[in-house]
Design a protein around this nucleic acid. Structure first.
Length: 267
DNA sequence: ATGACTCGCAACGCGAGA
C-alpha cells in the first residue's frame, strides 16, 4: 500500500504567493495539490517553477479573478476544465483530472455575498451544478476527491463566532443545505469524518488580527466518494503557511489515502 | 479608537474577497 496525500489550498494569487507555495511543496511534499484563486491567465501561471519541484500542472486560469489548478507528482490524465451545466458561465472555478486512478477536482465555489443579490443566486445555482457533477462521478464507482474552497461553513462549530456570521452567504441555511445535499449523495467530508469534535479552521481574515485571535472559519473541504473514503487514513489542516509573512488568508487542508499497489511511488 | 487587510489593475482608488 502507498500513502497518497492530496491537499487543497486557496492561495489568493499564485503570483503573490509563489515563495510560500514553493517552500510548502518542498517541505510537505504532497502528491497532489488543488489550488484556487490563482488570479492569473494560463500563460502567466509559474509553470517552470512548479515543474522544477517535480510537479505537473493542469491550469484553468482567468484574468484578475478566480482560477484553479491541479498539481501532481504522478502525472495528470483526462484533464477537464469547467463545471458542466451552464455554457455562459465564464468564471474559472473548476478543473478535474485523474491521478493514479483517483478522479480529483479543484473547486472554487462562489462566495455569494451579499446575500440579497444575484451573487447569492449564482452561488446556489453553481452548487446545483456541482451536485449534478458529483452525482455523475459517484455513479462511476471509482475513488473521487472533490477538493477546494467551498465557501461554506458546514456547522456552527466550524466558526469561531456563529453569531457574527448569520448574515453571511457562507453561513446561510440554503448554502449549508446545498452542501449537505452533496454529502447525502454518498460523499464523506474527510476532515470532519476523521475529527468529529475538533475545532480547527482553514481561513482567517486579514483584518482585525483574526489570525492572532484564532477567529477563523472552516470552509476548505475534501469530499470523498465511497471508494475514496474506503482508502482514507488521515485528514488534517496545516496551519503553518498561515503564520508566515505574505500569507494567503487560507491554509492547506490535506487527506491521506492508502492506495493499493506498489510501494514504489512512480511505478 | 485618531484603528482595523490584501490582491490585481494600469490604478495613483476601486472592486472583490469572506
Amino acid at each position: 500500500m502507498t500513502a497518497f496525500t492530496i491537499a487543497t489550498w486557496n492561495v489568493n494569487s499564485i503570483k503573490a504567493r509563489l515563495p510560500r507555495v514553493v517552500e510548502w511543496l518542498e517541505s510537505a511534499k504532497p502528491d497532489v495539490v488543488c489550488l484556487q484563486e490563482l488570479k492569473c491567465v494560463d500563460e502567466n501561471f509559474p509553470r517552470l517553477e512548479i515543474e522544477a519541484l517535480g510537479y505537473e500542472a493542469a491550469v484553468h486560469g482567468q484574468k484578475t479573478y478566480n482560477g484553479v489548478a491541479i498539481l501532481s507528482r504522478h502525472g495528470l490524465e483526462d484533464v477537464s476544465a469547467r463545471l458542466p451545466g451552464d455554457d455562459s458561465d465564464a468564471q474559472a472555478r473548476y478543473i478535474e483530472a485523474t491521478v493514479k486512478g483517483v478522479r480529483i477536482a479543484s473547486i472554487y465555489l462562489p462566495n455569494g455575498n451579499p446575500i440579497a443579490t444575484e451573487k447569492f443566486t449564482y452561488k446556489l445555482a453553481w452548487m446545483e451544478r456541482l451536485k449534478a457533477r458529483a452525482r455523475a462521478l459517484i455513479q462511476q464507482e471509482i475513488p473521487v476527491v472533490l477538493a477546494g474552497d467551498y465557501n461554506v461553513i458546514p456547522q456552527d462549530e466550524d466558526c469561531y463566532d456563529p453569531k457574527a456570521w448569520t448574515k453571511d452567504a457562507l453561513f446561510q441555511p440554503e448554502s449549508r443545505a446545498a452542501f449537505r445535499e452533496i454529502l447525502h449523495l454518498g460523499y464523506t467530508e474527510a476532515y470532519r469524518d476523521r475529527h468529529p469534535r475538533r475545532q480547527e479552521f482553514s481561513f482567517w481574515d486579514y483584518q482585525g488580527g483574526a489570525w492572532q485571535k484564532d477567529h477563523g472559519i472552516r470552509i476548505d473541504h475534501l469530499l470523498l466518494s465511497p471508494q475514496a473514503a474506503d482508502l482514507l487514513t488521515d485528514a488534517g489542516i496545516d496551519k503553518g503557511p498561515r503564520g508566515k509573512e505574505k500569507a494567503s488568508d487560507h491554509t492547506p487542508v490535506l487527506v491521506t489515502l492508502d492506495l493499493p499497489g506498489s510501494d514504489d511511488a512512480d511505478a
